[in-house]
């Protein structure tokens, strides 16, 4: 069965005709042309298709498009103005060498973006440890980098978001 729904993505409202069973990942990629959401497993493990739904990082391959009507969706295209500078997280990924093939990158960025926003929203945020960052990212697979540069990029930006100086070593054994 097909129905007409309104999806709010990156601040823009789209009206789209979808089958009830249309995956959100397919709808974003193929109906709305937001190709930056990558599909890696379609069973909710690899994290490549991660988007944010009302701020929460979710797997768009485990949701139907019709389920998210009325909610605010953020994809990688919504992290930074396409004509403007990169989001600080994207910039940190670039500086730290945190991507190789880049297929998993949007998923990691959106997972980390949630953490950054949460830290900024807290009155007295505690900068996360490297171990906490690694656990946070454990739901996203990367087969190219060995994770080290991704962890360093996210740790740096999370430390900034918590109002601390990322160049100061924390209690963790940092490089």
């Amino acid at each position: 069965m097909t129905r007409s729904i309104e999806l709010r993505v990156n601040g823009t409202t789209h009206r789209v005709e979808v089958e009830d069973r249309r995956l959100l990942s397919d709808c974003l990629r193929h109906d709305l042309g937001l190709r930056g959401t990558r599909v890696g497993c379609e069973h909710g493990v690899c994290g490549a298709c991660t988007v944010r739904l009302d701020g929460q990082a979710v797997r768009s391959c485990l949701l139907f498009a019709v389920q998210v009507e009325g909610q605010e969706i953020q994809t990688v295209e919504g992290l930074a103005d396409p004509e403007g500078p990169l989001h600080p997280l994207q910039e940190a990924f670039h500086r730290h060498g945190a991507l190789q093939c880049g297929y998993c990158t949007p998923g990691f960025l959106l997972t980390a973006a949630q953490l950054l926003d949460e830290l900024r929203a807290e009155p007295n945020p505690e900068p996360p440890s490297e171990e906490e960052i690694r656990v946070l990212l454990a739901g996203n697979l990367c087969r190219c980098t060995g994770y080290g540069p991704i962890v360093r990029a996210v740790l740096e930006q999370a430390t900034c978001a918590a109002g601390a100086d990322p160049t100061e070593p924390s209690g963790e054994d940092r490089r």
Binding site: R29, V39, L86
Partner: peptide
């Protein structure tokens, strides 16, 4: 720095499914 990062970071890079 790598010269080819930006389309990957912004999600605009073209892969086979695109």
């Amino acid at each position: 720095p790598r010269l080819d990062d930006e389309p990957l970071l912004r999600g605009s890079a073209w892969f086979v499914d695109d």
